[in-house]
C-alpha cells in the first residue's frame, strides 16, 4: 500500500508539471494541444543534456550540476516549443488546435529519435533525480511518503503553489486571466494581449517540459523505452479535472497517478483489463465535465475565449 502511494505521487507529479503549465497557458486563452509534444521535447532536451554532462564529467559528476543542467535544458526546450506555438497562433494567426496537434506529432518524433540515438538508458543520470533526504528511511511511513522523493517532486508542488498564488493574488495574474477571458476588454484596459499570451505560453511550456523529465528520470528511473505522449494527454485531462486550478491539481495529479497504476497493484488482473484501468483518469475527467456543466457555475468554466485568437479590430 505504501509503495502504491509513493508510486502514485511520483507518477502524479509528472502530470502536475504538465497540468500547471497547461493551466497557465490556457488562462491566457491559448488551448495548447501540443503539451504531449512539449513534454517529449522537454524530456529529450533534459536527457540529452544529462547524457552530455555525464559523459563529460565522468565519475566526478557533481549533484548540483547533474540536476541543474538537465532542468535548465528541459525548460529551454519547452519554452522554444511555446515560442513556436505563440509565433504561429499570435503572430501568424494560425488555428490553435491545428498548431497544437502539429507540435505533438513533432515532439513525439523528436523523442523517438532521442531514444534511438542515445540508447534510451539514463539510469546513471536518474540516480541524481531520485536521491533524497538521507534521513527519510529512519522516519517510517511518514518519511516514506513525504521525504523519500527526488528534487523534481518537490519542485512540482512548489511551482503549482506559486502559480496558484500568482494567478489569484497578483496584478499579473489578474491581467493574465482578463486576457484569457475577454481579450478585447483587456486590450481596452491597456494590457498588451500579445505579450501576455507569448509569455504565458512559453512559461507554461517550460514547466510542462519538466513533466516529461520527471516521468523519465524519476518515475521510470531513466529507462526510456516507449513514447510518453500519453502523459501529456493525461496532463491536459487533469487541467479539466481540476477546473483550471493548479492548487487543486496537486491532489488531482496524485489521484490520476493512482488510477493510472492501480491495475499493477491489484492481483489477478489480466493484461487486457489493465488497459481498461488506464482509461480511468479519462472517465473521471468526463464525469467531472458532466458535473461542472450541470452545475454551470461560471467560476468552474474554462476561460471564455479559450482557443480563440484575438485581433484588434482594424478600421
Amino acid at each position: 500500500m505504501l509503495a502504491f502511494l509513493v508510486s502514485s505521487i511520483r507518477l502524479g507529479m509528472a502530470f502536475l508539471f504538465g497540468s500547471t503549465g497547461e493551466t497557465i497557458t490556457e488562462k491566457s486563452g491559448h488551448l495548447n494541444l501540443g503539451i504531449p509534444g512539449v513534454m517529449c521535447v522537454g524530456a529529450s532536451c533534459g536527457c540529452f543534456a544529462e547524457y552530455l554532462y555525464l559523459s563529460e564529467a565522468g565519475p566526478n559528476a557533481n549533484y548540483f550540476l547533474a540536476v541543474f543542467i538537465p532542468i535548465i535544458a528541459t525548460m529551454l526546450g519547452g519554452a522554444v516549443m511555446g515560442l513556436i506555438f505563440s509565433f504561429l497562433t499570435v503572430t501568424l494567426r494560425a488555428n490553435q488546435n491545428v498548431t497544437g496537434l502539429v507540435l505533438t506529432t513533432f515532439g513525439v518524433g523528436v523523442s523517438d529519435y532521442m531514444i534511438a540515438e542515445t540508447g534510451a538508458v539514463y539510469s546513471k543520470g536518474s540516480r541524481f533525480f531520485t536521491s533524497s533526504f538521507p534521513f527519510a528511511e529512519d522516519l517510517g511511513w511518514f518519511g516514506e511518503i513525504f521525504l523519500s522523493h527526488g528534487i523534481l517532486i518537490y519542485l512540482a508542488i512548489i511551482i503549482a503553489l506559486v502559480s496558484s498564488f500568482v494567478l489569484t493574488k497578483t496584478r499579473v495574474g489578474l491581467n493574465l486571466r482578463a486576457v484569457g477571458e475577454n481579450p478585447a476588454t483587456a486590450d481596452a484596459a491597456g494590457i498588451n494581449v500579445s505579450r501576455y499570451r507569448y509569455a504565458a505560453t512559453c512559461i507554461g511550456c517550460a514547466i510542462a517540459g519538466l513533466g516529461g523529465l520527471s516521468f523519465i528520470m524519476d518515475y521510470l528511473n531513466g529507462n526510456w523505452e516507449y513514447c510518453i505522449d500519453a502523459i501529456g494527454w493525461l496532463a491536459i485531462a487533469l487541467v479539466i479535472f481540476t477546473v483550471w486550478k493548479p492548487s487543486v491539481a496537486i491532489i488531482g495529479s496524485i489521484i490520476f497517478g493512482a488510477l493510472y497504476i492501480a491495475s499493477s497493484y491489484i492481483t489477478g488482473v489480466s493484461f487486457a483489463s489493465k488497459e481498461i484501468f488506464k482509461m480511468l483518469p479519462y472517465v473521471v475527467t468526463i464525469i467531472v465535465l458532466v458535473f461542472t456543466s450541470i452545475r454551470n457555475k461560471r467560476e468552474n468554466q474554462p476561460p471564455q475565449s479559450l482557443g480563440l485568437s484575438y485581433f484588434r479590430e482594424e478600421r
Binding site: 489578474l174 491581467n175 486571466r177 482578463a178 477571458e181 475577454n182 476588454t185 483587456a186 484596459a189 491597456g190 494590457i191 461560471r298 467560476e299 468554466q301 471564455q304
Partner: peptide, 14 residues
C-alpha cells in the same frame, strides 16, 4: 467587462 471577475477586479484591471 470580464464576466467572471468581481466589480472591483474589473475596475482596477490594467
Amino acid at each position: 467587462l470580464v464576466d467572471v471577475f468581481s466589480a472591483t477586479e474589473n475596475i482596477i484591471l490594467g
